[in-house]
Structures are given as C-alpha cells and as structure tokens.
C-alpha cells in the first residue's frame, strides 16, 4: 500500500466510524421516538427539541437514517469481502453483532412493508415484529457497550 493510499484509508476508516456513529445516534433517537416517551419525560421540552415528539417527523427521520445505515452496512460488507477477507477474520463479537443487525434489518424491512397500504401480516406477527425490532436493538446496544469496554474489534488479522 502506498503512503497516499494508507493515508486515504485512515481517513476512510475515521469517516466510516463517524457515519456509523451518527447514523446509529439518529436511528436510536428516532426509533425511541416511536414510543410516546419524549413528551412525558421532558425531552421535547428542551429548547430546539420539540420536534422529537412529532411522530411523523421521527418516523421520516428513522427512514432517512435507515437508508444511510443500509447503504453503510452494504458498503462495509462488500469492502470486507473484496479487500479484507483474505487477510482478516470476522471475530466472534463481530458475528454476534452481525446477527443482531440482521434481526434489526429484517424486522425493520417487514415493518416498512407493513406501512404500505394493505394488510400484509397477521396481527400477532406485527406484535412480534415490534417487539423483535426493539429487542434486537437492545441486544446490539448491550453487545456494543461490552465490545467498546473490552476493546473487541469486528475483524482481526489472520495469523500465519
């Protein structure tokens, strides 16, 4: 790798971290905004944050953040497969986080479909989707905190 390309890759990694962090922040903010909590717990009273209690705004924002998130994870997966697969392994914590993200994406996609006109799923499956979507987010959150504290990476260099 040339000096220039390694510099570019460092910038790439840094911006990827920022994109991931910001997208996650807005996904969680708008996601929890789907539950009627922000008004009750004064969050919407903070100057400039009144909009967080508008369900249509947070719903739209959740979609926007989900679009960026889907683009981002597809980029990262393809990047791994093309550029890092030969030299790096996915760690156990990477796989675990991957499973939770797959759950979030799958349940989220079903809920997006459900929001189109029509009766797409049974009532009990919709309840399951609502619970699963939040449940996977909580699991990802717990795993992410654990990984942050114990400095677990998504991938590691192959040995030998």
């Amino acid at each position: 790798m040339t000096k220039n390309s390694s510099h570019a890759s460092r910038i790439g990694q840094k911006s990827a971290k920022w994109i991931y962090g910001l997208t996650m922040f807005f996904l969680v903010l708008s996601g929890f905004g789907q539950m009627p909590l922000y008004k009750r717990y004064y969050i919407a009273d903070i100057p400039g944050l009144k909009w967080v209690s508008d369900f249509y705004i947070t719903h739209y924002l959740h979609y926007l953040a989900a679009i960026v998130f889907l683009g981002f994870i597809s980029y990262k997966i393809t990047d791994y497969l093309l550029a890092f697969r030969k030299t790096h392994l996915i760690t156990l914590s990477g796989y675990i986080r991957g499973v939770w993200i797959t759950g979030i994406v799958f349940s989220g996609a079903c809920l997006v479909i459900n929001n189109f006109t029509g009766k797409w799923f049974s009532d009990s499956f919709i309840i399951f989707l609502d619970l699963a979507h939040t449940g996977f987010v909580m699991l990802l959150f717990i795993t992410a905190v654990y990984c942050k504290i114990s400095k677990k990476k998504w991938i590691m260099a192959r040995v030998g």
Partner: peptide, 22 residues
C-alpha cells in the same frame, strides 16, 4: 415516509457499488 422507502432498496446497491469502486 412511504415515498422514500424505495431508497431503502437502492441504498444497499449504492453501498456495494461504492465499495467495489473503491
């Protein structure tokens, strides 16, 4: 929101294309 849902299908394709391009 439903009008921008189509972008959720396009976004992954864009992600794949960007990584492949890089």
């Amino acid at each position: 929101a439903n009008n921008i849902a189509a972008a959720m299908v396009i976004a992954p394709l864009a992600g794949v294309a960007a990584a492949a391009g890089k």
